[in-house]
């Protein structure tokens, strides 16, 4: 029997700068791999990766699946549409079942905040959080930082990143607000008051209820997807008004530093949080973000399941 692994990737909270930088540097090597004619290395041959998705996701699941396959791991996708309660199964039983399958890594996406943490407390497999509720999405933040480093240079010290939209419900915003300061960048969070945490300043966050001051002089502008279901919860009156006040237009983008990057975790609501011409424009690095996603997830799987010793570009 193997010892329980402790090297989970549950969130940016608690991650050291060293681990973050090592992940980002490792991802560079893997990015090169994904650009080869034969995009495969045997690093995780014989390892089993379970993609356990309790919440619908195409992009993240595909990205993890490709990452595992390009490293030679056996990847199994399990879509579980229900939580443990609706099944009448305790989380303990779920974890015991997964352990019995001898998975090396379990990648979990769950609509409940903290679900991967509860699983990790008892799982022998390493757990990677692929997004939990409104809590964290650490590999998304890492791929965002990776993309920034590709375009702005490895040192993000002093860079200003404006994140705009539904901050309260966004795990992407939360993970970025933790990771970017770790790398020296300054984060501004902007959105309607109904979508900012109550007393956000007590969190040490720099928050704005309007987008314009947040954009001023920014090196990176990250727009968050607006969830149409929030409309019903009366967090904003209409898509039209949201777009008019908080949408990223070319005119607003001009407030940012010339050459500023425009990012979006996708999928886009064109014409709502981001104008189509901005999404497709010269500032946009939305597609490079997707490419970076596979490389960063290869690095994450490597961190959690790889043998000791760094990978080499020649591998």
């Amino acid at each position: 029997m193997t010892e329980p692994r402790q090297r989970h990737l549950l969130g940016i909270a608690g991650m050291s700068r060293e681990v973050a930088l090592s992940l980002l540097d490792t991802a560079k090597v893997f990015l090169e791999v994904t650009r080869r004619p034969v995009r495969k290395v045997p690093t995780l041959r014989g390892k089993t990766v379970l993609n356990l998705f309790f919440e619908a996701s195409t992009r993240t699941r595909t990205s993890f699946e490709l990452a595992g396959k390009r490293m030679g791991a056996d990847v199994v996708n399990i879509s579980a549409s229900t939580s443990s309660t609706t099944k009448g199964e305790t989380l303990h039983d779920t974890v015991a079942t997964l352990d019995a399958m001898h998975a090396d890594v379990v990648v979990i996406r769950h609509s409940a905040s903290g679900a991967p943490h509860i699983v990790a407390q008892r799982s022998r497999a390493a757990v990677i959080n692929a997004g939990d509720g409104m809590h964290e999405h650490p590999t998304q933040a890492l791929l965002d930082a990776f993309t920034m480093r590709q375009h702005l240079g490895d040192d993000l010290s002093g860079k200003v990143v404006a994140i705009c939209g539904d901050i309260l419900h966004s795990r992407v915003a939360r993970s970025n607000a933790l990771l970017l300061p770790l790398l020296g960048a300054r984060v501004r969070l902007a959105g309607p008051r109904t979508m900012l945490p109550h007393r956000a300043r007590d969190l040490g966050w720099e928050v704005y209820d309007r987008i314009e001051p947040a954009l001023e002089g920014a090196d990176v502008v990250m727009m968050l997807r607006i969830q149409r279901e929030r409309l019903g919860a009366a967090l904003f009156p209409s898509l039209r008004e949201y777009s008019r006040v908080w949408g990223l237009t070319g005119q607003r983008l001009a407030l940012a530093r010339p050459g500023a990057l425009v990012m979006h975790p996708g999928p886009l609501n064109r014409g709502v949080e981001i104008a189509g011409d901005v999404a497709d424009g010269p500032h946009s690095v939305i597609l490079p973000q997707v490419e970076a996603g596979v490389a960063v997830r290869m690095a994450a799987l490597y961190l959690c399941a790889g043998e000791s010793g760094p990978p080499t570009a020649q591998e």
């Binding site: 909270a13 905040s113 903290g114 509720g133 409104m134 809590h135 109550h198 007590d202 969190l203």
Partner: peptide
Amino acid sequence: AHMHEGVVSAQLGLKGWP
């Protein structure tokens, strides 16, 4: 709501009970 609305609920991504 899942827990008290405050700094901790914002950090944990749990819905707040004000």
